[in-house]
Design a protein around this nucleic acid. Structure first.
Length: 599
RNA sequence: CGGGGCGUGGCUCAGCCUGGUAGAGCGCUCGGUUCGGGACCGAGAGGUCGGAGGUUCGAAUCCUCUCGCCCCGACCA
């Protein structure tokens, strides 16, 4: 392309709306323009980048036997009602009605549609496995779109789905996808980690999240410096040093603790206890039901883990007034000993959804007759501990969990801290970093095939639900991560595998006929050699051209300047900002060698 | 949805508090001088001040409503 005719609307200044680096650079480099919140138009150069990424996606999907489909983005509500997600998913789904007033939606993912095809067409185990994918637009009405390409309301996704006859087949399909994903992100020049993550509302037994390390990311990842353990903080755990408790008294002993409100207060209170010898009691409303969450005094609750463990979709700390009614005490004196004996003839009070903390009259009576007690695994087997007595300004000591507390469920609920011991290896400690999700692979199992009736006959002639997996990569996320990880003060430094052009030929002075002709010829020679070249033939001063070339981040720049008289041009490498003189006769093969190396 | 901020030429912003002929820099057009890291001089084009209503002799400025965008939180396959 000739820059003079190609549409690259670069900006000299940072756009006012952009905060994160990738967003600023996407706008400044003339790659995208905003249409609305979370909605962006691709300019021609961005489209070239996206096409190169999609090509990599296709190659790697095809390599593992993937077959490319193209499914509709507009869906009738029926299929979503069958899977149950028409109701389960809230406002995040764009919904609309057709002229006959029938419910429709814009596709936010395609499990339902692919499963529809599978159940109509797949009959026998002999047809399996199938690996199906597409590259297509998705719509999600995010509550808060943000940071340019980081969280969009309409974006391109490569989504793949696998169909197997059994669990072992799924394991193989999942492993294939995992390998393909590793190749994809490596080829795109992205530094990534594979982490354990919560599956959320996708359902399924196991998922791996692919994340790119960047401070602009929204996720926190704990990873071991010594081994390959890495997990999203909502799932991460760590190894605890075992605690040896002294044998306590026959029964808990109540003692007065005037003024003690916090775990910390109790550590300094005469006759108190160390943090790790206390039981932290949190009152929560979990899916509208009262619950007590027990943790070791020095541990913090990781709320996503609470949701995963309880199977709930929503939780919140209980309000003061709720707690007072449940336990007859204030926060700071709460405990689980005897809590399950508490009776409320009209049930426990649960605030209405629109409850405001200062409006006690909005309280409604909940149906629950008992408190659910969920305890963190770190409390297992502990004894001689201290906790609140459910009586203001009093605590209990000598609490033996197994003997004194009726725990309904044990679970890993505790969040990890940087410096904690790795749960997988012996020596490592965990460090926590920010990252953005760029891909996610799920073992779905039979969630969709069962709800939607997709079965095949086994070798025994028995119908079994197809075992599915689902795998997604966001194209814009790859673009964003690539920029976040590869830029400097002057602009983007594209990994050469996804750069919009391999090389830019910069003619320093278009009014100099010799330079102009040399540039024109070199441009054609590069194209003939199979390289994507951009010829900067604008009537601009050299400085402007250099700044723009740096900004848009083409990996190599050939500068045509005065040294042409000696048969020399300059080869500039964007990533290192170094340049060397190269003979005009050798420049094409030189660039070719560099641009194609390692591809 | 809660909190905060912002809508003025293509871009970045000033003007608003204290109402009185709409400004600057960059970009754009034309002429000239320049020509290897965002040149300089001169002359121009370009704005319903997000929208609607109100107050006023007079509104970018004050008031009300409304639309949109950004950030934090909540939320999120």
């Amino acid at each position: 392309m000739r820059w003079s005719q190609y549409f690259i609307p670069t900006l000299r200044e940072d756009p006012a709306d952009a905060e994160v680096v990738s967003h600023k650079l996407l706008l400044r480099a003339g790659l995208i323009r905003q249409l609305g919140s979370g909605i962006y138009s691709y300019m021609p150069m961005a489209q070239r980048i996206a096409l190169r990424i999609m090509q990599i996606l296709r190659e790697e999907m095809n390599r593992i036997g993937g077959q490319e489909f193209y499914l509709p983005a507009l869906h009738p509500a029926e299929v979503w009602k069958e899977s149950g997600r028409w109701e389960a998913i809230g406002a995040e789904m764009f919904r609309l009605k057709d002229r006959k007033d029938a419910d429709m939606c814009l596709g936010m993912t395609h499990e339902e549609i692919f499963t529809t095809i599978a159940r109509n067409e797949l009959r026998s185990y002999k047809q399996l496995p199938q690996v199906w994918y597409q590259i297509q637009v998705k719509f999600r009405d995010e509550l808060r779109p943000k940071s340019g390409f980081m969280r969009l309301r309409t974006f391109i996704m490569k989504d793949a789905y696998t169909f197997d006859v059994d669990k072992a087949g799924l394991d193989k399909s999942f492993a294939d996808q995992r390998e393909a994903y590793k190749r994809i992100f490596s080829r795109c020049g992205i530094e990534y980690s594979i982490v354990e993550a919560s599956s959320g509302s996708m359902g399924g037994s196991e998922s791996n999240e692919f994340v790119a390390k960047t401070d602009a990311g929204e996720d926190l990842i704990a990873s071991c410096a010594n081994c390959d353990y890495a997990a999203n903080l909502e799932k991460a755990t760590s190894r605890l040093a075992p605690v040896k408790d002294l044998v306590g008294p026959e029964a808990p002993e109540e003692f007065p603790t005037p003024g003690v409100r916090t775990i910390e207060d109790l550590t300094t209170f005469p006759g108190g206890a160390k943090e790790r010898d206390q039981i932290k009691t949190l009152a929560y409303v979990v899916d509208g039901q009262p619950a007590l969450i027990l943790l070791r005094g020095d541990h913090q609750l990781q709320e996503i883990k609470l949701l995963d463990a309880s199977g709930a979709t929503k939780s919140r700390p209980a309000y003061r007034a709720e707690i007072q009614q449940w336990l007859g005490a204030s926060p700071g004196s709460l405990g689980a000993v005897g809590a399950n004996d508490r009776q409320h003839p009209d049930g426990f009070l649960i605030a209405a959804a629109d409850f405001a903390p200062n409006q006690v009259q909005l309280f409604l009576s909940g149906g629950a007759k008992r408190l659910r007690i969920i305890a963190d695994d770190a409390l297992k087997g502990r004894q001689n501990m201290t906790t609140g007595a459910n009586k203001d300004d009093h605590h209990l000591r000598g609490v033996n969990i197994a003997r004194d507390i009726e725990v309904n469920q044990w679970a890993d609920l505790r969040g990890v801290d940087s410096g904690d011991s790795c749960p997988r290896c012996d020596e490592g400690t965990l460090e926590i970093f920010k990252a953005m999700e760029i891909g996610h692979i799920f073992k779905l199992g039979t969630k969709y095939s069962e709800s939607m009736g997709a079965t095949v006959l086994t070798v025994d002639g028995k119908p079994v639900p197809i075992v599915m997996g689902s795998y997604g990569i966001g194209v814009e996320r790859i673009i964003t991560a690539a920029i976040e990880q590869n830029h400097d003060a002057d602009g983007i430094i594209w990994p050469k595998t996804i750069a919009p052009f391999d090389v830019v030929v910069t003619v320093t002075n278009m009014k100099d006929e010799k330079l102009r002709e040399t540039g024109e010829k070199l441009y054609k020679d590069l194209m003939r050699a199979g390289l994507d070249a951009l010829l900067d033939d604008r009537n601009e001063r050299a400085g402007v051209k250099f700044k723009d070339a740096d900004l848009i981040g083409i990996p190599y720049r050939v500068t045509i300047g005065k040294k042409v008289a000696d048969g020399l041009v300059e080869l500039f490498t964007r990533a290192t900002k170094t340049s060397e003189d190269v003979k005009l006769t050798e420049i094409v093969s030189q660039v070719q060698k560099l641009a194609l190396a390692g591809l």
